[in-house]
Design a protein around this nucleic acid. Structure first.
Lengths: 216, 216
DNA sequence: CATTCCATAGGGCAATTGCCGTATTTACGC
DNA sequence: GCGTAAATACGGCAATTGCCCTATGGAATG
């Protein structure tokens, strides 16, 4: 099996170190390297036939967390392993929330990196033991709200929330109308308005975004 | 360094398998073996100069989760790695809540087990990649109602999970097909099968149910 | 060696959804 | 009192979805 891999990292020295580590293994081919998130997204736009990305966190233009979120939104099939020198709780938590499939430190030895990549491709998660411990602690203690800041504030009306709640259960327009004692037309109109406010174009997206913003 | 280790497990066959695996390494000495939790607690009472316990979950008298909780309460310095054949979400979550420092499956190879023990002693967490992924998913999705009434175990194939993941981002059939390099027909067939397995009839319901079961 | 998944792929059809109009009534703030 | 927002409601149309059918090759399991 040939694994199509990409690296997004602004530090050329560390990129070279990663390349050296991967050079031992002929089942991995490095498709491209980007020096920041937006450059990486551009490369993905061209060709999203890719298995996995090794992603740095600290980068100019678009950092690793934001980039991870965007990649996972558009190309959820692409696995992402965060590969960084820092391992503070906030970064780890945000990376996980953004959808990262693993989190390794840059001093990782070649074998562990290779194994981690293979395991991630097979649906597992690659994790440094010290980071694994941090995730366990995060799971144990309810996560502080300090990590969850909602930049844009979206205001939905009470009725729109009602509709959204029903939407999230997977109910159809007609059933929602029946439940809320409304005409289906009204439900549709509400949903149209919700879409505009949330800037989405489907039920799932609406529910997804609403949950992220604690609206439902 | 000599690591003082104990095993709590009622299955003598598996205990023997573990002993065999550890016999390769002379930095680990097995201090005692208990066949259930209360027996283990009694041994600890006698002498709690111990570094680490390999703990089974399914046991008579006092199960692994309860035992872990009690050991950690009284002897927090003793590390505990859950070593079990089952890896369902509820067990993993409860074990973590109880204070386990790691979670490995019994089929683990000797080197990984040894490495996991050393890393745990050094403050890290030993985790099988598939279990690491489950913890990430638990961290991503709110844990609350997840374990209320989902006794049924739903098995989706790897490919079905891939498709479901894309669905959860709100992507359409055609985009998903494009991302996974599949024909739209295939994506539709996968989704049909997912619906049947989950017993649902729409994208949202599928995503909703899948999240409740920690499938995505 | 048979059987049962799994992954792949296509055709067809009815229902639902997403998006564009327009329109009326109620209510709240300035 | 007048503008604005919210809530209500209808019609139309293209695209998407949900569901039925069939079919093949490979992997796994017994």
């Amino acid at each position: 099996m040939n694994i199509k891999l990409a690296i997004i990292d602004d530090n050329t020295f560390l990129v070279k170190a990663i390349k050296d580590k991967l050079s031992f293994f002929d089942d991995i081919s490095i498709k491209w390297i980007a020096l920041d998130g937006s450059q990486g997204l551009a490369k993905l736009e061209e060709n999203h036939n890719l298995d996995i990305i090794l992603m740095d966190i600290e980068m100019p233009v678009l950092n690793g967390i934001e980039t991870t979120q965007m990649v996972k939104q558009k190309y959820p099939h692409v696995k992402i392993i965060m590969l960084t020198v820092f391992d503070n709780d906030e970064n780890i938590f945000k990376a996980i929330q953004a959808g990262a499939d693993g989190y390794l430190l840059k001093e990782v030895d070649p074998e562990t990196l290779h194994k981690g990549i293979l395991e991630t491709i097979n649906g597992g998660a690659a994790m440094n033991p010290s980071i694994a411990m941090k995730t366990l602690k995060l799971l144990r203690n309810p996560v502080d709200e300090k990590f969850l800041e909602n930049k844009e504030d979206i205001k939905l009306s009470k009725r729109e929330i009602d509709v959204l709640e029903q939407l999230s259960k997977g109910l159809s327009y007609t059933v929602i109308a029946d439940n809320l004692i409304l005409s289906p037309s009204t439900v549709r109109k509400h949903i149209e308005n919700i879409y505009k406010k949330l800037q989405v174009h489907s039920k799932i997206e609406a529910v997804h975004k609403a949950k992220r913003h604690n609206l439902i």
